[in-house]
Design a protein around this nucleic acid. Structure first.
Lengths: 336, 336
DNA sequence: AATATAAAGCGAAACGTTTCGCTCTCTAAA
DNA sequence: TTTAGAGAGCGAAACGTTTCGCTTTATATT
């Protein structure tokens, strides 16, 4: 039914190889080019990607495995990656593994069977077990947010320890001591890193971080809301809270407002991500901002580089740093 | 390099056709089945989907075009659809067209060129122009949230007029008259529908809806925040607000809390979507809840049905209704 | 015992590209 | 004028499946 290059060849009187050469950017006489283009338009010819793939073993498709599709950090990054990859002819197959290692493994295998040319993963599993299969097949893998030890794989990372440390140091420097933290889920790498930064900031000042000021959410609005209420209950003298992702920051703000507590007079707050939101709320939020654009661009470009090169060089690990955007949600207590 | 069915045939001593039959669920002797399975395991054989696709013209891939990946309504639905489709062997190619008609068109064409077996679209364009191409190629299309006039296409719809009407009627029945609405972007179908329902509720009571109480956001948290502030500025006697999506509901709540206005004593609120969130906030929110699970399931199953049938029957239009979940965010003013 | 029917298996052809190895023509250099 | 070399073009083979049409074997029915 659909036109093939044979039809184009017949119509133009040219050979198969010439049409193919045209399609793949080879040298073809101007007049023949024009003829081919006309025939293509007339017959509404589209390359059959199955046949092409059979010869080239390239699907021009990248698999993306992420923990949650309902997480703004994830989706913001995907949107940008998708944009860049599509402009280069690649489509993205997406799977949200719901922070489940088993599903993550299955999704990755599914992608390999679907013949993806590459895999982008924001890994859930600690050992990156799901990546063994694609790697053994020579399929390039780029990691987001987490390096997997022992695996020689490209990764784009953010220094989460430093991010959290900066936030807490900042609070300490403004005279805060009773600082709560709303962490992510306990098993997750970034969550652990941010908690580590929190503790380090205290330890460097010779203060021992208090266990009861650490609460664990699951990166959702609801859990931020719940954890903030927990903190308020646990500590009478709580003067500041550091929230470690965007959704939980929203939840925490809702809870604080509901309790009629004033930011920053009664409680100081440092949030996470989404500068846009932070600017619009009053008082403007002091936040840790991750370079989402840079992360996504790096991931996409590293992937494109891998896809276009033969030899696999050593893994490229990009480290990006976060920024502390100062708003008005932290009170200066040094002169109190 | 990779094993093919020829290798399996050689190893088992069986013919090519038998291996193929096995792979596609035909009748094969128990003992041969076992032999094939062993060979498959040993050689780590995986069907080459390019070759299969070349013969069958099926990619086992569905393209999904949505307006925004940062919208929870969209992503919640996609997550469920993806789950169901993957369990049936289908992968989903995703494109977030940023509410841009041109990008929507390009994405759809891109998907057609990528040989998707079907397209799921939450359409941005009014005339569904982007769907002409896939439809002309006999590629099944399922629409979410919007029927396109003149196109005989399956769709899963929610009665947004009734949803908004119910919400506003409810407010009116509780004695509210000065009711603001935070609408979505002006060009968008669902946005328009909800606004229509708002107006109808008033008109049915013989009241003429006030232009100045209608504000237009863009379905983001920031715009909800902004619109609520607009409403407060515009009307002194504002007693209730109806917000027409989840993100803007969040933004509105943040704004209300910030202004120190009490819900429901000083202002009543009806939000949209995300029951989970609505339950957790205090006071519990009264919301219009869309049947996200049902929407996604219907879309996925209609698509699967289309993919497995030869003849194309008439379009199936599923209408789902929303629910008004009563919380504590609306004040009874009838006895004031 | 003869026959019909079902089950299981087989090879060859076909799907629509890309690419190898080749030829022919034209221009530029010697 | 001769000779290289580049530019442009060509057909055939190959990629790894599925499927058509066929044969053989086993079982059930008469």
């Amino acid at each position: 039914m659909a036109a093939t290059i044979k039809d184009i060849a017949k119509k133009t009187g040219l050979g198969l190889a010439t049409i193919s050469k045209y399609l793949n950017g080879g040298n073809v006489l101007e007049e023949n080019k024009a003829a081919i283009e006309e025939a293509i338009k007339e017959l509404d010819f589209r390359v059959n990607e199955f046949a092409r793939g059979l010869k080239t073993s390239k699907s021009k498709t990248i698999g993306v495995v992420i923990p949650e599709l309902s997480n703004l950090f994830c989706t913001s990054i995907i949107t940008i990656i998708e944009d860049i990859l599509r402009q280069n002819g690649y489509g993205i197959l997406v799977c949200d593994c719901r922070t489940d290692e088993k599903l993550e493994y299955e999704a990755t295998e599914f992608f390999v069977n679907k013949m993806v040319d590459g895999i982008i993963s924001m890994p859930v599993s600690r050992d990156g077990g799901h990546l063994k299969l694609p790697l053994s097949k020579g399929i390039p893998v780029v990691l987001i947010d987490r390096k997997v030890e022992g695996l020689n794989v490209d990764a784009v990372l953010v220094d989460n320890v430093a991010a959290a440390e900066n936030a807490v140091e900042y609070l300490i420097s403004y005279g805060h001591r009773e600082i709560g933290i709303i962490c992510g889920p306990e098993g997750i790498f970034t969550s652990h890193q941010r908690q580590l930064g929190y503790s380090q900031a205290f330890i460097k000042k010779g203060i021992f971080p208090k266990q009861e000021l650490m609460t664990y959410g699951d990166y959702t609005v609801e859990s931020g809301y719940r954890c903030l209420n927990e903190l308020i209950k646990k500590s009478e003298s709580l003067s500041a809270v550091f929230v470690t992702n965007y959704e939980m920051t929203l939840g925490a703000i809702i809870a604080i407002n509901e309790l009629g507590i004033k930011i920053p007079e009664q409680i100081s707050l440092i949030g996470f991500d989404n500068m846009h939101m932070a600017q619009v709320v009053k008082p403007r939020l002091t936040i840790i901002s991750q370079p989402i654009h840079k992360i996504a661009e790096n991931v996409a470009h590293i992937m494109l580089k891998r896809l276009s090169q033969e030899k696999n060089e050593d893994a490229e690990i990009v480290h990006l740093s976060t920024e502390l955007i100062v708003g008005e949600s932290v009170q200066d207590r040094t002169h109190l």
